[in-house]
């Protein structure tokens, strides 16, 4: 592929890296990543992937920008209050890097549409804020054999893991089922430090970039946890794929996707 002079200059810090080079940058420009939820986590993911020159970025989110989002959702700004988050994020991406084609899906991701959305993408980012979506994304990615990066944040704590088909446990292998409604507080009652979204979202973007480049080791089979108060990262080795997992096991009992009730909260 021939880089324009502008692209050479824009991506010079990638191209000069031994593990990226022109071929790696070409892979990034040809890659397609879908970000489900462009809020706290999805914002930095979208921005770093756009800056990196991921050629096609899909963003799915049903919400509009609210003033209370702006403490952490850095893809949006005060002028965008009341605008669809996907439109606001698209503008942020376009301004940052015109090389990126953006596809927007302003809708709730459900069992009826998720397989259509994910099929065109190479890697999926879970940037959602509730357990029902997290289990739905996991189950759909297992079914469609798509790699994805899960993350969850709450207060001063964050965690992430990456699923690659055939290479480790899925989210359901570890967390089994969404918690009951009364076991978790609702989103608006739990806070999060905005910078937590930046820490964990940036790590999700890093996983997507490494997957596309085919370099290094992913968080497959590991959960990385971060405690901002003690400033500790822990890389916890996860058990191997669970043979009787309801979705990725040898005899899956989940054969159709499930929309759990939307009220539970897994962070922001």
């Amino acid at each position: 592929m021939a880089f324009s002079n502008e692209q050479l200059e824009r991506y010079a810090r990638h191209i000069v890296l031994k593990d990226v080079g022109a071929k790696g940058q070409e892979k990034l420009l040809n890659a397609k990543v879908l970000i489900i939820g462009v809020g706290g986590l999805g914002s930095p993911v979208a921005m770093y992937l756009a800056a990196a020159g991921i050629g096609t970025i899909g963003i799915a989110d049903a919400d509009v920008v609210d003033l209370s989002n702006l403490q952490r959702q850095i893809a949006h700004n005060t002028e965008k209050i009341g605008t669809a988050k996907v439109e606001s994020a698209k503008e942020t991406i376009n301004r940052m890097n015109p090389d990126v084609t953006v596809h927007t899906y302003q809708t709730l991701v459900t069992k009826d549409n998720i397989l259509d959305f994910i099929q065109d993408y190479d890697f999926i980012i879970d940037g959602t804020d509730n357990f029902s979506s997290k289990f739905l994304i996991n189950d759909a990615c297992v079914m469609a054999k798509k790699p994805f990066c899960h993350a969850g944040i709450l207060g001063f704590q964050g965690q992430l893991m990456t699923y690659v088909p055939g290479e480790g446990p899925c989210y359901r292998c570890i967390f089994h089922n969404p918690p009951k409604k009364d076991e978790v507080p609702t989103c608006k009652q739990v806070g999060v430090i905005g910078a937590m979204c930046g820490v964990i979202g940036s790590l999700q973007a890093m996983e997507a970039i490494k997957y596309i480049l085919g370099v290094g080791e992913l968080l497959t089979g590991y959960l990385l946890t971060y405690d901002a108060l003690t400033m500790e990262f822990r890389k916890v080795k996860l058990p191997k794929r669970v043979a009787n997992c309801a979705i990725c096991g040898d005899h899956p009992t989940i054969t159709e996707l499930i929309d759990y009730e939307q009220s539970e909260c897994a962070g922001v």
Binding site: L8, E9, A12, V16, G21, A22, K23
Partner: peptide, 16 residues
């Protein structure tokens, strides 16, 4: 015609 770090990047693209 280019400045660091584009110098090495441009040479590397040709070499690849």
């Amino acid at each position: 015609d280019v400045m660091c770090p584009v110098t090495f990047a441009k040479a590397k693209v040709a070499l690849e």
